[in-house]
Amino acid sequence: MELPLLANQLSVSSCGIYGKELARAVLAFKNKQRYFLRGVFAPYLAAVINASCVPQPGQLTTLIVPVPSSLKAVGQRGYSPVLSILEQGMRSGLYSRQLVCRSVLHYRVRSAFGGAQKLKSGSARRGGGEHFIAERAKVPGQPIILIDDVLTTGSTLRHAAMACHKAGYDVTLAVALALTKPPNQEPEQ
């Protein structure tokens, strides 16, 4: 995925292709309050994050930063899916010691109550300006890994990465629980 502001590419890894059982499980977790599935997803997400993390010099930790859910989605579900999976992994000791989960991204007020991304067209996802703000980095160049649930167009991760870059972070990687196939490929049933 290209990030114009960063003048480079952002590598994105995922646990699997969004289709068949994975799609049904993600939808059950997100839309049918099957909260117990966080324990099923946590080891897979941790494995991808741990395998993708580049060791940092000295004692510098890498932050695992969940892409936040909109306030509307959290109100409907009662939880933030990505954050709950990451917290389950942290409680279970699945992450290396150099990784720390921290919510540094927040929706801008005008975007916080927005609807589901899947209901928006590709151009609506790409447009719309800045959706997120990030807390200022305490250590300039603090490495972070962005985490999202489903990668469709890459717009959400692009906006999140640009907000983190503006706040002084070094966005090293993005990880998604599931990755959709490009539009020219047949979706799995």
Rank of each mutant, 00 (worst) to 15 (best):
P68D: 04
E87K: 13
L83V: 01
L37K: 13
P57C: 02
A73N: 09
P68F: 04
A42F: 14
A47K: 14
G39W: 10
A51Q: 14
V67F: 01
L37I: 12
Y79H: 03
T61M: 03
I85E: 02
S69P: 01
P81W: 04
T62P: 07
L71S: 08
T61F: 00
L86P: 03
A47T: 09
S69D: 00
G58D: 10
L71C: 05
F36D: 15
P68Y: 03
R77V: 04
A73V: 00
Y79W: 03
A51K: 14
E87H: 11
P81T: 10
P57I: 06
L45I: 15
G78V: 06
V74W: 02
P57Y: 03
L60F: 00
I49R: 10
Y44S: 13
P68C: 06
Q59N: 10
T62D: 08
T61K: 13
C53Y: 09
I85R: 06
S52F: 08
F41W: 14
P81S: 08
S84M: 10
P55T: 09
P55I: 09
Q59V: 06
V48N: 06
L60C: 06
L63C: 01
K72C: 02
P81D: 03
L71K: 10
Y44G: 14
R77M: 04
P57F: 05
N50V: 09
R38F: 02
T61D: 05
I64A: 00
Q59H: 09
Q76I: 04
L83A: 14
V65M: 01
L63S: 01
A51C: 08
N50T: 08
V40I: 15
P43S: 11
G39S: 12
V48L: 07
F36T: 11
S52M: 07
S84C: 04
S70L: 05
L45D: 02
R77K: 06
R77L: 05
R38I: 08
P68I: 01
L63Y: 10
F41N: 10
L86N: 07
S70T: 15
F36A: 15
P55N: 08
L71F: 02
F41G: 04
P43A: 12
V54N: 06
T61N: 05
T61E: 08
S52R: 11
P55H: 09
A73R: 11
S84T: 12
